[in-house]
Design a protein around this nucleic acid. Sequence first.
DNA 1: GTCGAGTTAGTAAACACTTACTCGTTTTCC
DNA 2: GGAAAACGAGTAAGTGTTTACTAACTCGAC
Lengths: 217, 217
Amino acid sequence: MASLPSSSNTDISHRPAGEERRRQIIAEAIRCFAAKGFRGTTIRELAGAVGLTEAALYRYFESKEALYQAIIDEKIAAPSPLSEVEEAARAGDDRAVFAGLARNFLESIESDPSFLRILLYTGLEDHELAAPFFDQRIHRLREFVAGYIERRSREGAFRAVDPKICARAFLGMVVDYQIVRHVFHQKDVYPAGPEEVAETFVTIFLDGMRAPEASRG
Amino acid sequence: MASLPSSSNTDISHRPAGEERRRQIIAEAIRCFAAKGFRGTTIRELAGAVGLTEAALYRYFESKEALYQAIIDEKIAAPSPLSEVEEAARAGDDRAVFAGLARNFLESIESDPSFLRILLYTGLEDHELAAPFFDQRIHRLREFVAGYIERRSREGAFRAVDPKICARAFLGMVVDYQIVRHVFHQKDVYPAGPEEVAETFVTIFLDGMRAPEASRG
DNA sequence: GTCGAGTTAGTAAACACTTACTCGTTTTCC
DNA sequence: GGAAAACGAGTAAGTGTTTACTAACTCGAC
């Protein structure tokens, strides 16, 4: 009995040591790939950082690409930032929706910029393996924002502009903030903290989106 | 006299054939570095693309880094996009200033996305050599926009918000458009062409920036 | 007959990945 | 209960390829 582990790669429960090492390696790989990119990171250096030799690392991941894949899988499985603003979206509380999204993004990237850097490397280096992440996370986020804007336009609260462009305009402001900070290391460009920046972005965006007739005295 | 060439490695002036090759190599290097990054590009492949062997290429550039440096130098020397909107800025024509900047950026990157990609690689790979470009071009652009916003705030046309943050908010929308298109290859995300996108960005931004008292009934 | 522009054929290091081994801990079986 | 087989986790020392860069030669034009 209890013979078949069956689940392809995660029959944990009674194997804490091995699985823990795996996680440790992924964590270190995220740091390394974020710092120097996929091409710029060597297996030797990565193995050394977790206190192993190259050969030992290959017991956990069959190739460098498999490691990259594991990172993407982990990030796809992470909780979505959308859940936090879905309620506000149902209620039509524009400021709560956009401020929630902005703060959520700014703070989560601020506390761990690695994945933003990895995503940029991914785009530049054209890694196919990240496609599922884009489909499942980024696309979904864009569609959520564009869908919300479209609805509010129909309701007369927002002006009638292309919702896709507007969604990107907002997300662009937010993403750019973190690219400038964590890719170009110019933290001084934004003199204020995430909360104030989020506040400013949301104010500009919402006032810019408001339907002319609806907002005027 | 005019004896001392003084510039360490380039006493060119009378060597047109060689100089043309040099330019050709730089142009190809821009393409390669943009496509695969500095680390991802091999000298052999680059030399092959201009129809030379590796050794021949080393007659024009003493190292791979020198090639990178030459690219940065060329881009620093290129004409600035600011000149086109300086007049509108003096006149206080907000829409002309921001629409001019947006269109200028969107179109110049659209017609040649290479340097945007190189700059991102540069940020991620931490190339010191690009620092002068950031100081002389990007910093100046930011300061121009922030300065204009600050002035218009003082004049009562714009609301009183941090001009640095607002400048980045605007530039962020524009830059993001091109990152999504040319780094993540998702050209479908923006359904419209550069002109319409620029128009939308400027409308959102300017209406969002307008001082509340000044614009209302 | 020298010199600019190019070539062929290297070098040494770095890299992803492999092979064949070690060693301690379980598990199995009598 | 204890010998032995199996196994998990690791290492040392490679392999073959790729890479930036070099040395020594060729060839045509003024």
